[in-house]
């Protein structure tokens, strides 16, 4: 027969080594307080300020023609930047993950380069190339092509800053799955396209979707780079984030926050989609981690 104290000792021995309860509580509170101050309060402020003058003023700010034009340009930019980066990301990942070649590490580093470049500098380089006093400026002017302070500039700057997103999600995933399946498919007589679409792509689909979500969030939300090249022409070259800036600088705070709340919904959508993908794509390995 075991005594109560023996049982208690055994229970203690099985319990994992951890901090005293008071430390755990203090650390948890500290973590939540930090996140509350820096994440939750700002988010709440967006909606509080947006609805400050009631739902009518909120809807009016969103329905305003300039806001609509900004929304259209934001959607157009993302509709160009995301598919282009998906094609590039798939091709780049196929190259880097499935072949061993000279200069591979260099190529992978160069693909990540836009992450290291400040958004403002990303805008500057396009102004240097295509601006009125840029390298190609006189030629463009002579042929009546406008890139800077026009929609093409906004699209180019967005393409630059969103360049690595899809590739960077796909490369590690496609590297981890190796080349055995592809080689087996080849030996069974599959063509290159068949291998890619039936073997490689299905194995990488969650990574692809993840990259698309992040790329889209950045494409729609980019501010610095787009701000340099857009020229802030209302109704023409304003994206939603730039529209927020203009309204804010005109002290039209309520309207600025109303438009900002739309972009916050975009952020919620992104986070929810991200969580869903992480949950769907969880491998048995990581699920075991979760159980522990």
């Amino acid at each position: 027969m075991q005594t109560a104290s023996q049982l208690a000792r055994e229970a203690r021995a099985v319990r994992p080594v951890t901090e005293p309860p008071i430390v755990r509580a203090a650390l948890t509170l500290l973590a939540i307080a930090f996140l509350a101050f820096f994440l939750m309060v700002p988010l709440a402020a967006v909606f509080a300020q947006a609805l400050e003058k009631g739902i009518g003023a909120y809807l009016a700010a969103i329905r305003e023609p300039d806001a609509w034009a900004a929304m259209r340009l934001t959607l157009l930019t993302a509709a160009i930047a995301v598919p282009v980066n998906v094609v590039f990301g798939l091709v780049a990942a196929w190259t880097i993950a499935k072949f061993e070649f000279r200069g591979k590490n260099l190529l992978a580093t160069l693909i990540d380069l836009p992450f290291a470049v400040s958004p403002v500098i990303a805008g500057v380089v396009f102004v240097l190339l295509f601006g009125r006093r840029g390298f190609l400026g006189p030629w463009l002017m002579a042929h009546d092509v406008k890139i800077i302070f026009a929609v093409p500039g906004v699209v180019l700057a967005t393409l630059f800053v969103t360049f690595p997103f899809v590739a960077r999600e796909l490369i590690p995933l496609m590297q981890a799955s190796g080349t055995d399946d592809e080689e087996a498919a080849r030996s069974l007589g599959a063509s290159g396209w068949q291998i890619f679409s039936r073997v490689t792509l299905p194995a990488a689909k969650w990574g692809l979707l993840y990259g698309v979500i992040l790329c889209n969030a950045r494409a729609m939300g980019e501010f610095g780079a787009v701000s340099v090249v857009s020229g802030h022409i209302r109704g023409l070259t304003n994206t939603l984030p730039l529209h927020v800036e203009i309204l804010y600088n005109e002290y039209n705070f309520q309207a600025a926050f109303a438009v900002a709340s739309l972009l916050s919904f975009l952020a919620f959508g992104t986070l929810i989609a991200k969580g869903w993908i992480e949950w769907r794509s969880r491998t048995p390995e990581s699920a075991r981690h979760e159980m522990r």
């Binding site: 996140l35 994440l39 700002p42 402020a45 992040l214 939300g221 501010f223 600025a256 952020a267 919620f268």
Partner: peptide, 16 residues
Amino acid sequence: LVDLPFALPTAVAGIA
């Protein structure tokens, strides 16, 4: 929520 700064456009964070 930790990923919010990746998902929220920087201009929105700035004015908030």
